[in-house]
Design a protein around this nucleic acid. Structure first.
Lengths: 469, 444
RNA sequence: GGCCUGGUAGCUCAGUGGUUAGAGCACCAGUUAUAUAUGCUGAAGGUCCCUGGUUCAAACCCAGGUCCGGCCG
């Protein structure tokens, strides 16, 4: 096999460098584990509360994922935390009681030390030295103690790269309901199920603060078309996109939105913007306003045309509206074999949807599933699950748009056919109720009734209530 | 990668959807046929048909759906050469590694190509997947497959190579955005992975292992190699089953009613049997043949009122109660059985009139089947679609997922802008020493 | 001749979104009798056809054999 370098592909990644620019909204992980969103603007000051304050310029141009310590409004890069092997000892908590004053360094004293400019590590060291039971603790416990103190006093933070995963996790922790429980594992599955790729044509309904739209955009690489449907007059804001720091021109070239009215094929604007005769335009200001209005209107019409042209590759839904009504409204714009993916925090809504779609010849085999995720703490000697997030990530329904052929006849399994034939043969041969043979279904075959083989299919598909009852 | 055209052409790969559990990939070839349980089809008949069409069998017995291939369908249809990755893991790894259009990704080993197809789709033509497989036959099969699927040459480069021994191609060094290792001993490949990953920005690795012991060893190797933010996940999807007419919770009152009525029915029958038997006894003295006649009468009575409804109760399908009741009117004790049956049915949820779900194919109404799982319960003879549907997770979740161990590689600190580098210079070396933790600083 | 399903309890089976470790029948036990016919309750019953190979130390894996069946010529 030729070496990889023999390929014509560029040897550099097409991904942009991940550096912080002025204007970015950046997520910072604080010592206590919280994540804070800050806007980085040139020459401004960023405050992290008790964790310190620093000049934004210090961060501009920096790559993501780096940890910093704050001192005197400037930043010092600190190495990432690595895992520490902890020695096993014989210590236990047998002799350690809660509630007793064992650590005499008071809050006042700590404040004094801080004022005096003592480094965090110094303060913690002092607490450890004076801690009555510290030596009794296991090494694991000591490690945890130090980490807890560090989280309290350390003036440091880590920048978080705005990947879909990280942004998604941030929003999930921040406000699960505003993203309609759309957890990252669910979102990841949705994007794959919908086969999002550069150059595709997609429809989306996103009432999850734009998380779904963010995911789709991140997988389109600035190529293709995404039309979103919303229930407001103005363009939707999709606040999650702020944290993704997408390039404006990339978003503009791909994404457009219609609302449920303008997406109607018989929609007519109440005020047609271009029907004002030229002689009635009185000022330049009015003229520019009218031009702008016309431009907006033209753009809207173009998006409508695009929607009505159909042949979309997927429809993605994370909406508060009845998903079936959305599919009814937009299904006609999907091409054959297009994917439909719906997410909802409510299983009842999804089971109703599945129960409806399963009878539609337009949608193939709607499948409902629940996402399940478990995260582990990974530390030498201390690996265990930290979260079991089943049920909280919502439910996903996937189906494929198909073109029906009403003339198609289902084939029953030959074994069932055979069974019915056997039953029919026996009953017609004997003309009596079948001894020892149970009829397959009371409504299907009556004892003593002769059934021809041709009729069997009909019988099987007949409604359960036979006419002779 | 696969056809984007609206209709099927000669040479296209398509996925034939047979059942939920049975998908068959075919390459459309003029003159070829497809002869399966669900009918008989000529490839020639598929050419020109739009993707996503339902196609009826030539012999009018059966149909198939012809679908445009996607990596997700491919995962369900592909020929297994190894155990494969499924959607939940693939999707999670993809998002955690931040694989997206333009990404350069390394994968080892290729296996059956389930993950490869998905990644190739996501990175698109501007990205690249470098896949390594150490098993020669599998390498050849994957080469053939990727070529036929239009991934090679182009988006994917496949190499026959044991990366644990020989590492990745040196020309890849410092150039890839993420590495995915699906190997029995990923720790052997970790240093090579580090070499391949780009150093000018954050980059990522994932190791996929079924066993915790492997994970622990991998974590140590990652830590030793200078990776940070080590996390580990387990993910899967639980398919749900939806029932349209759920079995209701029965009330104890209904149980009481049923029991009382059963008792009454029994008593009625007993009295009749006694009477009948008495008559039989009388006639027996008179005439031998008379006995059989009377016994036959007793049979009739049973069959007409008692036996049938009760027998029905256990059988699936529709109750012929409606037919049975008029017949029993002729018998001495008609009322109680009828009532009992109706009352039992009374708490059936199918009765409510409000109907939201309207099946488009009413003659395929399957509702009775939804009830077959509750023996002892009878389905209504007319089967309106119930207002509610319920869903339930399948008890059995497919397969045990593996553990997904993730880590990040940060640019060496020296490359980043620093205002104080004294403690950080160590980080630019490939093997970090003991962490710069509290202890070290305290000592200072 | 070619292609393709199936094979699990003593028996019969489990469907192109209708739960293949789940049932029904039969059998057995308990219960109900002025009564060998009914009902109710429960129990028992499993080499998932055979053989081999393979996947990571998780099979929706594969091949050969065998029997049953379907379709095409």
């Amino acid at each position: 096999m030729a070496s990889a370098s023999a390929e014509s592909s560029s040897s550099r990644s097409a991904l942009e460098d991940s550096c912080i620019s002025s204007g970015d909204t950046v997520l910072l992980r604080l010592p206590n584990g919280d994540v804070k969103s800050v806007k980085i603007t040139k020459d401004s000051t960023v405050s992290l509360g008790k964790f310190g304050t620093f000049l934004a310029n210090e961060l501009i141009g920096q790559t993501f994922g780096v940890s910093y310590e704050i001192s005197d409004k400037t930043l010092t890069v600190i190495p990432p935390r690595t895992l520490e092997e902890v020695e096993e000892t014989a210590a236990t908590n047998e002799l350690i009681d809660d509630g007793l004053p064992v650590q005499p360094v008071t809050n006042e004293r700590i404040q004094e030390l801080k004022q005096a400019g003592v480094h965090v590590s110094g303060i913690i060291q002092k607490q450890i030295e004076q801690h009555a039971n510290y030596s009794l603790k296991t090494e694991y416990s000591k490690d945890k103690y130090k980490k807890r103190k560090e989280a309290k006093y350390s003036k440091s933070f880590t920048t978080i790269e705005p990947t879909l995963f990280n942004v998604s996790e941030y929003w999930f922790n921040k406000d699960q309901s505003r993203i309609r429980d759309l957890r990252i594992d669910a979102l990841a599955q949705i994007l794959n199920m919908a086969n999002i790729k550069p150059g595709g044509r997609y429809l989306a309904v996103d009432d999850a603060s734009g998380l779904l739209v963010s995911g789709i955009l991140s997988r389109m690489g600035g190529q293709g078309r995404l039309i979103t449907l919303c229930d407001i007059e103005s363009p939707p804001s999709y606040p999650v996109m702020t944290h993704m720091n997408f390039k404006t021109e990339m978003v503009k070239s791909v994404l457009d939105s219609l609302n449920w009215a303008t997406a109607q094929e018989d929609y007519e604007p109440v005020f047609a913007p271009h029907d004002l005769p030229a002689d009635q335009i009185k000022s330049d200001k009015q003229k520019s306003r009218l031009n702008k209005r016309k431009a907006v209107s033209d753009a809207l019409m173009a998006v409508r045309e695009d929607l009505f042209a159909g042949e979309f590759d997927a429809l993605l839904i994370a909406s508060e509206y009845d998903p079936n009504s959305i599919i009814e409204a937009l299904g006609k714009y999907l091409g054959g074999s297009a994917n439909v993916v719906v997410h909802s925090p409510y299983v009842q809504i999804m089971s109703d949807l599945q129960a409806t779609l399963r009878w539609s010849p337009e949608y193939l085999s709607p499948a409902l599933s629940e996402v399940w995720l478990r995260k582990y703490q990974v530390l030498p000697g201390r690996t265990h699950p930290v979260m079991n997030m089943s049920g909280s990530g919502g439910y996903i329904l996937h189906t494929i748009k198909v073109y029906d052929d009403p003339s198609a006849v289902p084939v029953t399994s030959h074994r069932r056919q055979q069974r019915l034939k056997n039953v029919a043969a026996k009953s017609s041969a004997s003309g009596t109720p079948m001894d020892g043979i149970e009829p397959p279904d009371e409504s299907d075959v009556k004892p003593g009734i002769v059934v021809s083989a041709e009729d069997l299919d009909t019988i099987m598909d007949a409604p359960s209530s036979s006419p002779d009852e | 990668m696969w056809s984007d055209a609206r209709t099927i052409q000669h040479g296209d790969v398509l996925i034939v959807w047979l059942t939920r559990d049975l998908l068959q990939p075919i390459q459309v070839t003029k003159g070829a046929d497809l002869n399966i349980r669900f009918g008989y089809y000529l490839h020639d008949d598929l050419i020109g048909v739009p993707y996503g069409s339902k196609v009826a069998s030539r012999n009018k017995k059966g149909f198939i759906h012809v679908l445009r291939p996607t990596p997700e369908l491919w995962t369900q249809a592909l020929p297994h050469r190894t155990q494969i990755l499924y959607l939940a893991d693939i999707a999670f790894v993809t998002s955690h590694l931040d694989i997206r259009p333009g990404s350069r990704v390394v994968e080892a080993g290729t296996g059956s190509g389930s993950f490869s197809h998905s990644v190739a789709r996501t990175v698109g033509p501007k990205g690249h997947l470098f896949s390594f497989e150490f098993h020669h036959t599998r390498f050849l099969k994957a080469t053939d497959e990727f070529t036929r699927h239009g991934l090679m040459p182009g988006t994917v480069t496949l190499a026959h190579r044991n990366v644990c021994k020989d590492g990745f191609d040196p020309s890849l060094n410092d150039s890839v955005d993420s590495v995915f290792l699906d190997l029995p001993m990923p720790w052997d490949a970790v240093p090579y992975a580090k070499a391949a990953l780009r150093k000018d920005r954050i980059s990522r690795i994932c190791c996929f292992s079924p066993c915790m012991e492997q994970v622990l060893r991998t974590v140590i190797a990652l830590n030793d190699a200078g990776f940070s933010e080590i996390t580990m996940y387990e993910t899967l999807t639980r398919p749900h089953e939806v029932s349209i007419a759920p079995p209701p919770l029965k009330t104890v009152q209904s149980a009481a009613t049923t029991l009382m009525q059963a008792e009454r029915v029994r008593e009625d029958r007993r009295l009749r049997q006694v009477a009948s038997s008495t008559r039989a006894g009388l006639s027996k003295k008179q005439d031998k043949t008379g006995k059989s006649k009377d016994v036959a009468t007793g049979e009739e009575e049973d069959a007409s009122e008692g036996a049938k409804p009760h027998g029905e109760k256990r059988k699936r399908g529709v109750s012929p109660d409606a037919g049975a009741v008029p017949a029993s009117n002729a018998s001495p004790a008609p009322e109680p059985p009828k009532k009992a049956r109706l009352d039992t049915d009374g708490d059936d949820p199918s009765a409510p009139t409000q109907t939201l779900i309207v099946p488009s194919a009413p003659d395929a109404t399957p509702v009775p089947g939804a009830l077959t799982s509750t023996p002892g319960r009878n389905s209504p003879s007319v089967a309106p679609i119930a207002r509610t549907s319920v869903s339930r997770a399948f008890a059995e979740v497919r397969g045990h997922t593996s553990y997904l161990t993730f880590a990040c590689l940060l640019p060496p600190v020296a490359a980043a802008k620093t205002s104080l580098a004294s403690t950080s210079l160590d980080r630019s070396e490939s093997t970090p020493k003991a962490p710069e933790g509290v202890d070290a600083e305290v000592a200072a």
